[in-house]
Amino acid sequence: MTLKKVIARDLRLALRQKTDAATVVLFFALTAALFPFAIGPEAAILLRIAPGVIWVTALLSVLLSLERLFLADFEDGTLELMFLSSLPLELVVFGKVLAHWLVSGLPLIVATPLIAILYGLPFAALTVMLPALLLGTAALSLIGAIGAALTIGARRGGILVPLLVLPLYIPVLIFGIAATDAGISDGAIKAPLMILSALLLGMLFVAPLASGVALRQALE
């Protein structure tokens, strides 16, 4: 069992059901498209709420696909095999999160320009928004892994994951939107982007560790 194998396996399983990645993108785009119907098509208002809508719907998209992260493998015993193999559990977590992000986070980038058009965002803003979304969704996947690992075998685990994970999502949300806002209004983009990167780096360290501990608890 190597890191590459873990990532490849998860990707294969996810892409076998091609609908999964497509579903995530569709959910993202459709939800974002709902707001103008709810709020009205006034351009100034849409411009104002665009960063918030994009980030919250991206967050929800990542959140929705988290439950599957460990559950299927836990139930059919694959997770235990991975645990018993020579690959450290933390790397298993990293591999699975990477695969998850490639399927559920990265594709959102595809839908973002479309949403930018719907909300009348200047295209220049995308040069900041896309990197910010890449960094942010990666952090969200990592944080989400902790929630998914903690709730394996829990009753109502599906509802529990958002409850556990949403408070931890708030810093990523705040700085992701700050970066996007700065990109639109040509403000200071460096500070929020650096903080976003710092959050991602922090989570790259903390999430596999915490998830590893949680997975060991589930496997004992």
Binding site: I146, A154, P167, I170, P171, I174, L199, G202, V213, A214
Partner: peptide, 20 residues
């Protein structure tokens, strides 16, 4: 599990406070 959550939470509290 709650113990892990509490520790992850306590690390995040200064970050959340700072962000907010």
């Amino acid at each position: 599990a709650a113990a892990v959550l509490a520790l992850v939470g306590v690390i995040n509290i200064p970050i959340i406070k700072f962000s907010v």
